[in-house]
Write a protein that binds this DNA or RNA. Structure first.
Length: 261
DNA sequence: ATGGTAGACCTTCTA
């Protein structure tokens, strides 16, 4: 089973690019972030034509997440528990049905900049809510994958120039500590487990020639429960997608899970 | 050098 995560930075602004990638990569499951549209504007039929079941948690202009699967999606949850007043569409979860069901959560973790604003507090609070929710999911003892744009640079090896990111919400000690706390619940970082070599970036800013200079960061992650991590056979960062026409600033990351028969 | 681009959309916010 191939599980993909991709922050598409508006699904409708680059629909041909996104659909083209789905045709060639053919993931079994995909988590999309920053779809930047309400549910009714999501191109559901286009993905259904490629054989996907589609669930969406959309929002006007900002954020928005979707979950796609070749097999039916069950036990669907839209929105992260822990704050009924939270209007931002950043979380979607479902069980991927099949002989070996897998629970998949797609997340678009808040950016948190500027750190002097309430946005940074919202980010850290959101991470605390995620930690609490994942703790409950792990108690189910199912294969579980939490995939998405975490907006966290876990380690110095995950950024072209760590010094340039000191003080940024993606690299602040509080953000990295919260990411570690999440992993310490018993989760495995797909990339560290499957490759781990420095320079496995997933995002390059549109500005300042970040892509041609390879000024990238690794912020799109899949965290795996023990039952899912045991089946991980590899991970691929689809770096070439960043060089295509009208690209997202993120590229797809695909984890391969090979469940024993 | 304190730059630069992209998307949604009402003029500025978010990233």
């Amino acid at each position: 089973m191939r599980i993909a995560t991709w922050n598409v930075n508006s699904v409708n602004a680059r629909l041909p690019t996104v659909l083209g990638w789905f045709e060639e990569a053919a993931p079994d499951v995909a988590c999309l972030q920053e779809i930047k549209c309400v549910d009714e504007k999501f191109p559901t039929e286009a993905f259904e034509r490629l054989g996907y079941n589609v669930i969406v948690h959309g929002q006007k202009t900002y954020n928005g997440v979707a979950l796609l699967s070749k097999t039916p999606l069950e036990d669907v949850r839209r929105g992260l528990p822990g704050d009924d007043g939270d209007e931002q569409a950043r979380y979607i979860e479902a069980v991927i049905s099949g002989p070996r069901p897998v629970r998949v959560a797609g997340i678009y973790l808040p950016n948190g900049n500027p750190t002097t604003s309430e946005k940074f507090a919202y980010k850290l609070n959101w991470m605390a809510r995620l930690n609490a929710h994942v703790r409950g999911l792990l108690s189910l003892e199912e294969p579980l994958v939490i995939a998405g744009d975490y907006n966290v640079i876990p380690e110095p090896a995950d950024v072209y120039d760590p010094a340039a990111w000191v003080g940024d919400a993606l690299y602040r000690p509080e953000s990295r500590a919260a990411f570690r706390s999440l992993k310490w619940l018993g989760l495995t970082d797909d990339y560290i487990a499957a490759d781990g070599s420095p320079g496995g970036y997933t995002f390059w800013d549109y500005q300042a020639g970040a892509w041609p200079r390879d000024h990238g960061i690794r912020i799109d992650h899949l965290l795996l429960s023990p039952g899912a991590a045991d089946s991980l056979t590899g991970v691929t960062i689809h770096r070439d997608v960043r060089a295509r026409e009208k690209p997202s600033d993120h590229v797809p990351v695909v984890a391969e899970l090979d469940f024993p028969a």
